[in-house]
């Protein structure tokens, strides 16, 4: 294993990135192609975990921790809880016809080809070849978050509050209907 020129960067083999990228693609394919919704959720958890590894490889430590807590903690518990509540399995799974599936895959591949083509035409000038190792640390991000982005940060608390109220209101049983 060689080290890149930034002495304090976490040195890793380049093949590790490709291995984790392969895992990310594999698990995200499993999310949309498995018939059983429970396996989809489990694949989604694995996908989020590989995203956490990607953040660690980018030395974005704050994002890695937040991704781990928010996605693999909160969001996954929500998904699994709702899934258990609904008692879904492979037999009740609604499937689209094969024609729609083929058309969907073709549309997706077309989108991918368009994106890749535009990436090749992209000029990445002004972007250094090596990642800056310092900015992803909690200290730097905290300074930016509480100086430059203070107002959006406070507004996001309002968003979370309204989301909480909205979720409680939506999930509450309507008293006017009997079968509700």
């Amino acid at each position: 294993m060689r080290f890149n020129q930034k002495g304090n960067t976490v040195a890793y083999d380049m093949s590790l990135f490709y291995f984790v990228a392969f895992l990310t693609i594999l698990f995200s394919l499993l999310v949309i192609f498995t018939k059983n919704p429970v396996y989809s959720v489990l694949s989604l958890i694995a996908t989020f975990f590989t995203f956490t590894i990607h953040y660690i490889l980018l030395n974005a430590q704050f994002l890695a921790v937040v991704n781990f807590i928010v996605y693999m903690g909160a969001i996954m518990v929500l998904f699994l809880f709702v899934l258990m509540l609904m008692n879904l399995n492979e037999e009740t799974e609604p499937m689209k016809s094969n024609l729609i599936k083929i058309i969907g895959v073709i549309a997706g591949v077309t989108l991918l080809v368009t994106l890749v083509g535009s990436i090749h035409a992209l000029q990445t000038t002004g972007v250094s070849a090596t990642p800056n190792s310092e900015i992803g640390l909690v200290e730097n991000l905290g300074k930016v978050l509480f100086s430059e982005f203070l107002l959006p940060f406070e507004l996001s608390s309002l968003l979370l509050l309204s989301a909480m109220v909205g979720a409680v209101l939506l999930a509450k049983k309507d008293k006017r209907t009997n079968n509700g």
Binding site: A60, T130, N140, L141, F149, F153
Partner: peptide, 27 residues
């Protein structure tokens, strides 16, 4: 992009998107 261009704003945006995603999932 944020890591490669040395600008911390991108990672702050990711933080906001994560907060938004949590709210969106709940709703």
């Amino acid at each position: 992009f944020s890591a490669y261009s040395g600008d911390a704003s991108g990672q702050v945006f990711v933080f906001f998107i994560m907060a938004l995603a949590a709210a969106e999932v709940a709703i």
